[in-house]
Write a protein that binds this DNA or RNA. Structure first.
Lengths: 226, 226
DNA sequence: AATTGTGAAGCATTTCACAGCT
DNA sequence: AGCTGTGAAATGCTTCACAATT
């Protein structure tokens, strides 16, 4: 397919590429603060740890943003990536579950991100309802659908116990949420247009053990004794 | 001792397969509580969301654990996976950084995992040192190497700001830690035998926006207006 | 001279399809 | 008859190598 000048229209964009964009964006913002106007894929590579070719390819999926022989204009590229990700303007998120993990995520997110902003928090525990985290009120679960709808929430963050996760996911979907970050250790099912990304901390932790001297495949396991 | 069956000797095991094992283990433990003695890959698929073929292939990397025509013996398979992961016995972990995220990770991990156990916590803030999280004391940073060595810490969890992450990683490596879970948003570099797994929450959150109606590749971006 | 953008090659992982046991 | 184990095919992602451009 020959399309020069024109950004590649109907090409499938690998999810892996999309997920690296925020890393590029972070570095570009750093560079802007350092008043660096132009950057090469090699320099971006040094700062992100991804290979220069991969960076070029990732960016090229969305069009030709660089200048051959020169590099990428820092500010323009940052703006472009923000636009591609949907981070121009503020995007509204809701956190469900204000336990240990949920509370930490809220504080972490609220202190760092202007672009993705938690605007509502929900919890089943009546003792928590009415309190707030950094100015965002904690509401009861039965408010989830109306509040998310009213506030135009696009992203849901699930930090509830496994048993509740599916119900929460369904409610979020019904409320019009379009993407979900699921920290519960169960596979949730939602109707088609909702995107789900899972982070299972237990899986991450336990699989780490494999890479230590105590884990690993020991060869033929002999003996069945406990 | 003799090699029974045919455990695949010198085959490379995909990291992706190792990272799914904890999910299988979790379901197997559930099934044990439900007194289910045997399980098929189809049933495991229904409970984990991974495909039956993939599950069979993953397990087969480590040897032939099932019985054709029947399925997998729940208890034996669970024991096998724990052994492969190195989760027979308790494996010692250290958390570095007791901020919002670190504290939540400590509470989450300490309340859930018996097998991977946080035995030491470190923080730069003198106000936090001396306090503890669920019975585990918070120690000053300069104690990191001696304490980790003394306690035989194999896994390190980094939850410090980006600026400190590399120094912490190097210290952990020097203390003999063999695997690191890095929550900071920088690529850390450690000498060879240390395995590093990154979880970048900002990347996860921001890339989610792409999959909403506000994000996504909009086609040829025209106009440079903000 | 330097650096991007990209087809093609190279890997890695997943899915398919079915032979092989129980 | 049912379900595992596994080569082979398909898919997806990364790296290579170099033409195109400033």
């Amino acid at each position: 397919m020959r399309s020069q000048g024109t950004p590649p229209r109907n090409q499938r964009i690998p999810d892996a590429a999309v997920r690296r964009l925020p890393a590029y964006l972070r570095v570009l913002e750093e560079l802007q603060r350092e008043r660096v106007a132009v950057v090469s894929s090699t320099e971006l590579s040094a700062r992100t740890g991804f290979s220069p070719e991969q960076i070029r390819k990732d960016l090229a999926y969305f069009g030709a943003f660089g200048t051959r022989g020169v590099g990428y204009e820092t500010e323009a590229l940052a703006r472009r990536i923000r636009r591609i990700l949907g981070l121009h303007g503020t995007i509204h998120a809701a956190l469900v579950g204000a336990g240990n993990l949920g509370t930490a995520l809220a504080r972490y997110t609220l202190s760092r991100h202007e672009d993705v902003r938690i605007v509502a928090i929900f919890d089943v525990d009546p003792a928590k309802v009415g309190k707030g985290i950094q100015g965002v009120a904690i509401s009861p679960m039965d408010q989830l659908i109306p509040v998310c709808r009213r506030l135009g929430v696009k992203i849901g963050i699930i930090a509830v116990p496994a048993s509740e996760a599916q119900a929460v996911a369904s409610a979020l979907a019904e409320a019009g949420v379009e993407a979900i970050l699921n920290f519960s250790p169960v596979k949730i099912h939602v109707s088609d247009p909702v995107y789900v990304q899972n982070i299972d901390l237990t899986m991450e932790l336990q699989s780490l053990a494999y890479h230590t001297s105590v884990g690993g495949y020991p060869g033929p396991l002999d003996g069945e004794s406990p």
